[in-house]
Amino acid sequence: MMLAKKLVVITRKFKSRDLIFNNVVWFLLVIVLVVMGLFDPIFFSKGILKNILVQGTVLGVLTAGISFTILIGEIDLSIVGTIGFAAGLGTLLMGKGLNWLIAILLIIVIGTVVGVINGLLISRMKAVSLIETLAMMLILEGALLAVTKGRSIVNFPDAFSFVGQKAIFGIPVMIIAFLLVYIIVYVIWNKTVLGRSLYAVGGNAVSAYTSGIRVDRVRIVAFTISGAFAGFAGFLLASYMGAVTMTFGQDYLMYTLAAAVIGGVSLTGGRGSIVGVLGGVLLLTVIQVGLQVLGISSYYVTMVGGLMILLAVIIDAVRIRVQG
């Protein structure tokens, strides 16, 4: 009884319009699931959840990373270069006898270093992030080609593939990694000084600076985290696929941007929640998996991806207009 009363008070506090806008991604997710389920009842089965989460892990980790940079009003396109280059170099050296654990760490460290470089160029040299990270993306994609000479890298030791392909107590390790990343990001964004600083810098960098926030440092940290997560995503993808190809991870860029924006991270910075990002990642993954399951030709997949981004941008624009 008490609880019911409280709920009424809470819901009355928020305008229903805001409620819908802040959770639009979850409404969409439910709708898409129902529609898919009407075509193929498999979408109402238990196994599908596991499947979606596993397939969404790499996208999820990448998107969590890029969201740090979008939140401060910048962008990091280089992540799709990092994911391939870091995984490529790490697994190549592993093939030449490098210990698997060190290879994993190396992959993450490479991503981190790329992030630090991006951060330094953008905060200290005042490079424009869109262009700087685009250049970095091209450099790294080229570097992957150079490293692999166009061949795929395969035959990873079991220990390396464990995270991508095995389960603990029936739960795929991928899913554990996925959820762990989101819990950590949730805590950072909502409970720490860094999180507060990210919102402040994205909302109004000058006011943040005048309030004593070290804005440059926050920018560097955001890009560093984005790079580190991209490296980690590279490891996850290599471990899951069991191979690093020459275009490894490159098709993630569109989806990761769309997921963040649909999830409510505003491209103008300062606004967004990690729960929303999670919703965006799941929504896009469900659609991708759905198209596969329903046997829709892969020719349409790119178009659907484009449509998703369009939808995301429209939602973002409407949200800004409505919420001011």
Partner: peptide
């Protein structure tokens, strides 16, 4: 321009001083 981060709450704005 220099005082407020308008998207943040009153609490967060005042909180800058005690971060």
């Amino acid at each position: 321009a220099e005082g407020l981060v308008g998207l943040l709450s009153i609490k967060a704005n005042v909180g800058f001083s005690v971060l």
